[in-house]
Design a protein around this nucleic acid. Structure first.
Lengths: 134, 134
DNA sequence: CCTTGCTACTTTGCATTGCGTACTACCTAT
DNA sequence: ATAGGTAGTACGCAATGCAAAGTAGCAAGG
């Protein structure tokens, strides 16, 4: 049990990857909401949360992209135990974006809940317009 | 206001696209949970739910793939108003998968909630290991 | 007859993204 | 110098959402 994503079998394996695509970007920004942090620490922090374990090659590109887009800013700092760390923190633009994400995420959840309850207006009876023809 | 996805500005525009990856697949299977339906109807049903509006070129490929993977089965039927309809419905395999998705989705939501509350173990004080150097 | 418009579905092509693998660079300890 | 953990980069692949355009059947209007 290393990759916490094998819930059932491999049936939804690929789906989870796709589902997390945009969610991870949100998670990284959430991880920086309280204050600055660096890649390695974020990776470890996320790995402690169920289903959010990620690798370096997932986190660093996202951090780099968010920085390039102006949502994060970076600062170098000594680590004492290894190479220089790159501390990331949210910019104001990033905080605005995070606020929008915070607003959008529950909307999506809500829409899905709505979908769960509301049937696609398909007739509840049974087939109505084919083999019965006429 | 046609594309319900412009919440703020174009700031999270691309993010939403990524976030919906995988989620749409879930939505389509949810739409078929009650019974069979066809692409066009699903599109219209989803378009009535906030933030779930999709186009044909999004839905049909997903339906085709789900069918190819054995999660859906299809059946042709006359429509009376246009060309033949392809009615999709969940297979048993699809229902199992949908159940796993139903289990996974709240887990992801929950993990994100956890992340919102739990800070990345960064020190709450302030910087601790850089410019102060030694 | 021809055109417009609605329904229903398909195809092509593109841009984005997560992530596995491999690699480099830095620091400390022995 | 060598070994080991830390921090980050680079390359490449496979999926996916989605816009745009095309096809095909049916109905109403000129």
């Amino acid at each position: 049990m290393q990759s916490s994503k094998d819930i059932g079998n491999g049936l939804i394996d690929g789906w989870i990857v796709q589902l997390r695509k945009g969610a991870l970007e949100y998670c990284l920004m959430l991880a920086l909401r309280r204050g600055e942090s660096y890649g390695y620490e974020i990776i470890q922090a996320l790995s402690e949360i169920r289903d959010l374990s990620v690798g370096e090659s997932t986190v660093y590109p996202i951090l780099a992209r968010l920085k390039a887009e102006g949502f994060l800013k970076a600062r170098l700092g000594r680590s004492g135990t290894g190479p220089m760390r790159r501390y990331f923190s949210l910019t104001e633009k990033g905080r605005i974006r995070l606020a929008m994400m915070d607003a959008y995420w529950p909307m999506l959840s809500d829409s899905i809940e709505t979908l769960k309850k509301a049937a696609v207006r398909a007739v509840p009876g049974k087939g109505r317009c084919d083999n019965g023809k006429d």
